[in-house]
Simulated scan of single mutants.
Amino acid sequence: MTDLSAFIAGLPKAELHVHIEGTFEPELMYALAQRNKVAFPYDSVEALRGAYRFGNLQDFLDLYYQGMSVLVTEQDFYDLAMAYFRRAAAQAVRHAEIFFDPQGHTERGVPFQTMIDGLWRAKADAEAQFGMSISMILCFLRHLDEASALRTLNEALPWRDRFIGVGLDSSEKGHPPSKFQTVFARARGIGLKAVAHAGEEGPPEYVWEALDLLQVQRIDHGNRALEDERLTARLAREAMPLTVCPLSNLRLCVVNDMTRHPLRRMLQAGLVATINSDDPAYFGGYVNENYSAVQQALDLSRDEIVTLAANSFRAAFIDRAEQQRHLGVLTAYAVG
C-alpha cells in the first residue's frame, strides 16, 4: 500500500460538496456563542468538542442546527466562511462551490441579507487573498415543506447574482426529491443550476427522481446508485457527476469500514466521482483528509487520485476556458 498523502497535499482540486455551516469548528462556535451571548449547553470548548460524536445522520443534524444558533451577525457569517476558505486554500483547493442553508437562519429571525452579505464579503476577500474562485449554492432543507422552500427562493431573488444554483439537503429518509419539483422548476426557469443530495441514506429511487423530476446537473453523494445497474449505467452514459464524501459516509455509517467504500467501484464503472468533505468540522477532516483516508483504505493509485481531482474540475460549474486552465495546472503538477 502506497501512502500518497504528500502528493495529495499539493494536488490542485475543486471542492463541490461542502456545507459552510458544517465547517463550524468547536473553537469558533464557542467563541461566537460567547460574543453574541447566546444560551449554549456547553461550558467549554472541550465539552462542545465531546458533542461532535454521533451515531447517525439525525444525531449529527441535531448538533448542526444547534450550532447555527450562534450565527447572528454579518460578521459571524464572515468569520465562519473565512475560516473555511483559509483551510481550503491551504489544502490546494483552487475552486470551491459552497452550500448554505438560509432556512436554518431566517426561520430563527436572522435576515437573509445579514447572512448573504457576510458570506459574500468573505468570498470576495478569500478570492483576493488566496487566488481561489468561489461560488455559492442555496440549499433547501428537505425536512421542511416545499412552501417554505418557495418562500426562501423568493426571498433570495434580490441577491440572485450572488448564488449560482440551488440544492437539496438535510434528512433524506422520507423526503424524496419529488417533494420539491415545483421549486426546482422555478429555480431552473430563472437560470439557476440544480443539484441534490440523493442516494446517501435514501434509496436508488431518490437518485432517479433527482435526475428525472428535479433535472439536476450533479448528484450529491449517490453511493446507493450502485445498487441499481441500470441507474449506474445511466450515470456513466450521461457523465453525471457524483460528489462523494468518504469521511462523512464513515461517520454517518453509510459505510461501516472505509475499506468497503464504493469509490473505486464508481471509478471502475466509469462514473464521474469526486471527493469532498461535506461537513468537515463534524466528520474529522477537510478535503485532503478525505482524499488520504480513502486512498489508503482502497490503495488508490496516483493516477486514480489525479482522475478524481480532474473530475472535480470537470464537474464544477465553471466555463470551459477556466476548466481547461485548472486541468492544465493539474497535469503539470502530476507530471512534475
Rank of each mutant, 00 (worst) to 15 (best):
P177R: 03
F184N: 06
K179M: 10
R151A: 11
P158Y: 03
K179Q: 14
T182F: 12
L150W: 04
L157M: 07
D161C: 09
F184Y: 11
W159D: 04
E172I: 08
D145C: 07
T182V: 13
K179Y: 15
V183H: 08
F180L: 00
A187W: 01
N154D: 14
G174A: 10
S170D: 13
A156C: 02
A149T: 02
F184M: 02
F180T: 03
R160K: 07
R151S: 06
T152S: 05
L153Q: 02
G174V: 13
L144G: 01
V183R: 05
H175N: 12
E146C: 02
F184L: 03
W159C: 02
E146P: 08
K179W: 11
V183F: 10
A185V: 09
P176K: 09
Q181C: 13
L144W: 06
P176T: 14
G189S: 06
E155A: 11
K179P: 09
R151P: 09
L144N: 01
E155T: 11
F180K: 00
L150D: 02
G174R: 15
A147W: 01
L144D: 05
S178F: 09
E172A: 12
P177K: 12
K179F: 12
L144S: 00
G174W: 13
G165Q: 10
H143C: 02
Q181E: 15
T182N: 12
V183L: 02
A147I: 12
H175R: 11
H175W: 09
Q181T: 15
P176M: 13
D169C: 06
L150C: 05
S148Q: 13
K179G: 12
D145F: 06
E172M: 11
F163Q: 03
A149P: 01
L150P: 06
P176E: 10
H175S: 06
P158M: 01
T182E: 15
R160S: 07
G174H: 12
S148K: 09
F163I: 02
D161S: 14
S171Y: 14
V183C: 07
F184G: 00
Q181M: 15
R186E: 13
L168Q: 09
R160Q: 07
L144A: 01
